[in-house]
């Protein structure tokens, strides 16, 4: 771990790392267009940069099979390509995003129709954290970092462990993870993002409609960490704390937990697959059937 940051600029200078969900399977099923969404997000990113000269924005695209940095406001390349018609931010980001989507497409493997595959959120979260760690070490002065996940596609239970690890690492370096979950149906929520925001002290918000996305983004997620201390921001109504089991990557309500390494399983095993501890030697058979019954509910 890097030593605790001792000096900052003024309190409201922020480094915002945005993970942008580009999952084509999700967007093709979604009622509103990716381009509408993107144009609102771009205006939001621009407004963050507008708020302060030292503010920094990094965008990471989250695809189906890969993730990549698509924009970094601090890199020098940005100044070169201003062509007058479009701000450098937009042209750079769009160019990189195009390249990324093409690359991600090549990696795509076949999947069952009707079932939207999840995006690689764990990957982009880790990349975001790596970037932030670099910012921490860059010198005595660095902006206050935070992560904003713009996510639409459903959670991928197979990424559970990786995402949880990323969340805890964010918590340890006190980086809040804000999440803006975009979904057409009102009932669905992302358990991963809810947990991420809950644990790291970020904001989880699901805009009720996408037409005014910019307004939601600028009202809720543009708030710098300093101002959050004295503003009323959306509070989460409840967090889905369910875990995924390590054996089948399913989200479960009740399960078995290894007493040694706390790995979670959906069914009884004789031996822990993570730490190889042997279970149940002293237990009677009756007790274990009892357990199984409880789990079955």
């Amino acid at each position: 771990m890097s030593p605790a940051p001792s000096k900052n600029y003024t309190d409201d200078v922020s480094l915002l790392v945005v993970t942008l969900d580009t999952n084509p399977f999700f967007w093709s099923d979604f009622p509103s267009h990716f381009s509408d969404f993107l144009s609102q997000v771009l205006a939001f990113l621009n407004s963050i940069l507008l708020l302060g000269q030292l503010n920094q924005v990094v965008v990471i695209a989250t695809g189906c099979n890969s993730c990549s940095y698509v924009y970094d406001s601090s890199s020098n390349k940005n100044h070169a390509s201003t062509n007058g018609t479009m701000p450098a931010l937009y042209s750079n980001l769009l160019h990189n995003l195009d390249e990324f989507i093409a690359k991600d497409k090549q990696l795509t493997t076949a999947h069952e129709p009707g079932n939207v595959p999840s995006s690689l959120l764990s990957g982009s979260l880790s990349k975001a954290l790596c970037y932030i760690q670099r910012a921490f070490r860059s010198g005595p002065m660095h902006p206050q970092p935070r992560i904003l996940c713009l996510q639409g596609s459903p959670d991928g239970p197979e990424q559970y462990v990786a995402i949880m690890n990323a969340i805890f690492s964010a918590q340890r370096s006190s980086v809040p993870v804000d999440s803006c979950y975009i979904a057409s149906s009102n009932s669905s929520n992302s358990a991963f993002l809810q947990q991420a925001s809950y644990i790291t002290g970020g904001i989880y918000y699901k805009p009720p409609q996408l037409d005014g996305l910019f307004q939601y983004l600028s009202a809720v997620f543009a708030t710098d960490l300093h101002s959050r201390a004295f503003l009323r921001l959306p509070k989460s109504l409840g967090v889905d704390f369910r875990a995924s089991c390590f054996c089948h990557k399913k989200t479960i309500d009740t399960g078995y937990v290894c007493s040694v390494c706390l790995s979670i399983f959906c069914e009884h095993h004789d031996k822990c697959s993570t730490c190889s501890s042997v279970f149940g030697q002293a237990q009677s058979v009756a007790a274990s059937t009892d357990n199984r019954k409880r789990k079955a509910e």
Partner: peptide, 17 residues
């Protein structure tokens, strides 16, 4: 806009549209 106190910046942004 950049010279404003943080909260004022936020208000402006929020009412911009």
């Amino acid at each position: 806009l950049r010279s404003l106190p943080p909260l004022a910046k936020k208000y402006v942004l929020q009412l911009l549209h």
